[in-house]
Every structure is written in structure tokens, then in C-alpha cells.
């Protein structure tokens, strides 16, 4: 295994392996992010911060419906002003571990994205992730910014004007043409793309209660059920743009990560897998990915990245 190189560099930031803790999973504080980093993640994403404090939705907020998860947590966060302090502490703890920190954020207006970006940049994260695709973040027309190429590009431009940090734009699968969105944010200056955010929204109804179980009624679908859609989105995006892509969606095993990388992903987001396999999942993914690479004579991720695009 020692001759294998699992590292990847995204926007000049070195990840010792391609596995990135996805936003919204465990990212609530410095101590838990440090734990994830120590358990073998290549990079970690903190929970999304917005312009002001948000309580989030009442429970139930997350459910295991059998083939995946559904969630409507509602972006609870203390607001970016408090967030900067939390991110600074996190960055401090991650630095000696050599694990990069990705700061995710959202806002409700284009201008707001620029303002939050400017504030959050003070914490000195390695990368920014612009969350334009959470089903809970909508523009004045009731659509997430990720649903419209123009809106997605405007947000990207605004953030790139506000800070010099490399910016990842997180896209939604719930669009007619994800390639158009990807091209728009690339042209607007996005340094990378992460995809996909949750699918849906979906709904699970309790047939005894006769009502939706989530307090918010609808929520985003994640987990194994969405993997084929995530892989297709990553494939489409990688065929349309040349910036790096973090492939996210239902990756539970090293083999699933191989699939994402073959679709063109440079790195792979890990979310629901923390539920299915525990926080120790990062070490196991690394072993499974290494085993696959050894068996196939691959020494580096670049040896098979995007091979599915060539066929």
C-alpha cells in the first residue's frame, strides 16, 4: 500500500486522500471536526453559516427511510459572526494534522453571499464552499440559486469579488440541465464544483398518523438511493467544465468512490456514510480504495480519473 498515492490537490490545496466530510454532517464544532480529521478524512467541511443565527426546524429532522435518509434540519447555525470564531478554532486544531478546512456558507440574496463570504474569509479556511443548493435556501422567486444559471453565476461572481480564497460552488441535482449551471459558475470564476446536494425534496408519510413525518414535511434525500443520480450529475458536470469536481452522493464504500472518480471527480464527499458505517468510515474507505487500486495496478487517482468519460 505504501507505493499508492491517494493524494489530490484541489485549487492548490493538498488533500492526503480524496475523502471530504460533506457539509452538514457533524460539522458543528471544532472538537468534532478535529475528531473527523483524526479519523482519516482528507478534508472536512464545517456546517453552513448564514448571515444571522437560525434555529433550524423542529424535530423530526432526519430519518432513515430504508434505502436512504431524508432530512430537513433547516440550516441551524449561530450566524457567520460567531461562525468565524468557531472556524478559527477549528483551523487551529486542524493545522497540525495537515487536514484542510472547507467553510460552507449561504445567504438569501446575491449581495448577502458576498457579505458572508467576506466575513467568513477572516477565519482563514483553506477553501470556501458556496451553498447555493440547500433546499432551504431560496431566492425571492422561491427557487434555490442553484436552479438558475444566471443566479448561480451572479452569486459566484459576488463571492469571487469579495474574497481571494478559492471557492467551490455546491450544485443541486434538482435542475433540468446541470451542465448549464456548471458552465455558468465556471465562467463566473468558480474554482471548483461540489455536487450533488440532496435530491428532492422528498416526503415520507407515516401511515398510522396520516401525515408527513418530518416537521418541515419535505426534506432532501441522501444516502445509497441517490448514488446513481449523483454519479450521472458528476459525469455530466465533468464533461462540461474543466475545474475540479468534488463528487458527493451516496458514497458508502471505497468502490463507490472509484465510481465517482471514474465519472471525473477529483475528490469524494462523505455524508450519510457516517451514519451507515460510523465516523471510522474514513479509514475504511481508504483501505477499500487502496485495495481496489492495488488490484488494478493503479498508483495514483489520476490513473483512472474520468476514464468513464472517455468511452
Amino acid at each position: 500500500m505504501s507505493r499508492l498515492d491517494l493524494s489530490v490537490t484541489i485549487c492548490g490545496v493538498l488533500l492526503k486522500n480524496p475523502f471530504v466530510l460533506a457539509s452538514g454532517i457533524l460539522g458543528t464544532g471544532a472538537a468534532i471536526l478535529e475528531r473527523v480529521a483524526r479519523s482519516g478524512a482528507g478534508a472536512v467541511t464545517a456546517k453552513s453559516y448564514g448571515p444571522g443565527p437560525r434555529a433550524g426546524y423542529p424535530n423530526p429532522t432526519v430519518l432513515d427511510w430504508g434505502s436512504g435518509l431524508i432530512n430537513a434540519v433547516g440550516l441551524p447555525n449561530p450566524g457567520v459572526e460567531v461562525g468565524v470564531g468557531e472556524l478559527l478554532e477549528t483551523k487551529e486544531r486542524l493545522r497540525p494534522l495537515g487536514v484542510p478546512l472547507i467553510a460552507s456558507f449561504f445567504a438569501d440574496t446575491v449581495k448577502g453571499y458576498g457579505e458572508v463570504a467576506r466575513t467568513i474569509a477572516q477565519a482563514g479556511p483553506d477553501l470556501l464552499e458556496i451553498n447555493i443548493s440547500c433546499p432551504n435556501v431560496e431566492d425571492e422567486f422561491g427557487q434555490p440559486f442553484a436552479a438558475d444559471p444566471r443566479a448561480a453565476a451572479q452569486v459566484t461572481l459576488e463571492v469571487k469579488r469579495a474574497t481571494s480564497l478559492p471557492a467551490i460552488v455546491k450544485l443541486s441535482p434538482n435542475v433540468a440541465d446541470i451542465k448549464a449551471i456548471a458552465r455558468a459558475v465556471e465562467q463566473a470564476g468558480a474554482d471548483a464544483i461540489s455536487a450533488i446536494n440532496t435530491l428532492g425534496p422528498g416526503m415520507v408519510i407515516d401511515i398510522e398518523a396520516g401525515r408527513p413525518i418530518l416537521a418541515h414535511r419535505v426534506g432532501g434525500i441522501s444516502g445509497p438511493a441517490i448514488r446513481p443520480i449523483a454519479v450521472r450529475c458528476v459525469y455530466d458536470i465533468c464533461s462540461a467544465v474543466s475545474i475540479p469536481v468534488i463528487g458527493i452522493g451516496g458514497v458508502l464504500r471505497g468502490q463507490d468512490a472509484v465510481e465517482m472518480i471514474m465519472a471525473g471527480a477529483s475528490a469524494v464527499g462523505i455524508g450519510s456514510a457516517v451514519y451507515y458505517r460510523g465516523p471510522g468510515v474514513f479509514k475504511r474507505l481508504e483501505v477499500e480504495l487502496s485495495t481496489y487500486m492495488e488490484a488494478h495496478g493503479y498508483a495514483r487517482l489520476a490513473d483512472f480519473r474520468g476514464v468513464a468519460l472517455e468511452g
Binding site: 458543528t28 472538537a31 475528531r35 424535530n59 432526519v62 435518509l69 457516517v274 460510523g278
Partner: peptide, 20 residues
């Protein structure tokens, strides 16, 4: 606690998830 499934991090104390 929010999710009760070890995912959301709401109940984390010193890096430990009280729920899980």
C-alpha cells in the same frame, strides 16, 4: 438532540456524539 442518529452534531460534547 436533533437527529438522534449521530449525523447532525447537535449533541456533540468535546467531540463525542451523546446520541451515538
Amino acid at each position: 438532540m436533533r437527529c438522534g442518529m449521530g449525523l447532525c452534531g447537535s449533541c456533540a460534547v468535546a467531540g463525542r456524539r451523546v446520541c451515538r
